[in-house]
């Protein structure tokens, strides 16, 4: 048998982390679409989605030893991913289309277009923040995308409430300068 090229070789240890993330991601996407399809006017709150995903996944082997708080953390990351992908597609829409191929019934949603820009910019800025201050990036991601409240954040990050609020304030201000610039 020939040797497998390096990039195909699986890393069994990232596997389980990826599995958890992937399950969460998949569930959230599924829920998000389900919500939209059943009621086009329904609002998606991250908390509801995450709670629903938790109910579904909590008993599965990947998550059975995970605390809900920890799940929320993973879900926040997954939620970010879901939204960024949706944003990317919308973003691509703006670049015009090939007349030969297709038209969709709906016109491209203008509101969606600018939102997608914002989210993509936020995503880039958050990635940068993760380099500068990983804990703050985790804080913002968990809070904004995962809906974790301050008490949960103190437990998750192992710091005091004052630190959480302080970090939030500074990260938020910095991110805003990055987005506005």
């Amino acid at each position: 048998m020939s040797r497998r090229p390096p990039q195909d070789a699986p890393d069994p240890h990232r596997e389980a982390l990826d599995l958890q993330f992937s399950h969460a991601y998949e569930e959230l996407r599924r829920l998000a679409s389900a919500v939209k399809r059943s009621d086009p006017n329904a609002t998606l709150t991250p908390t509801t989605l995450v709670n629903e995903a938790w109910v579904k996944l909590a008993k599965s082997p990947q998550f059975v030893a995970t605390s809900k708080l920890h799940f929320k953390r993973i879900a926040a990351r997954a939620m970010r991913q879901v939204l960024i992908e949706a944003a990317r597609r919308r973003h691509a829409d703006k670049r015009g289309y090939d007349a030969v191929f297709v038209t969709f019934d709906d016109a491209i949603d203008v509101a969606a277009a600018s939102t997608s820009d914002d989210l993509l910019a936020l995503d880039r800025a958050l990635t940068e923040l993760a380099r500068l201050n990983p804990r703050q990036a985790a804080l913002v991601e968990s809070r904004f995308f995962g809906g974790l409240d301050v008490a949960e954040l103190t437990t998750l990050l192992g710091v005091s409430e004052a630190t959480v609020l302080r970090d939030w304030r500074a990260a938020r201000a910095w991110l805003a300068t990055e987005l506005g610039a």
Partner: peptide, 15 residues
């Protein structure tokens, strides 16, 4: 609210 931010992204596209 994230819901507010993300809402428009899920509109349409399923047609």
């Amino acid at each position: 609210d994230l819901a507010e931010v993300a809402g428009p992204l899920f509109a349409g596209g399923r047609a």
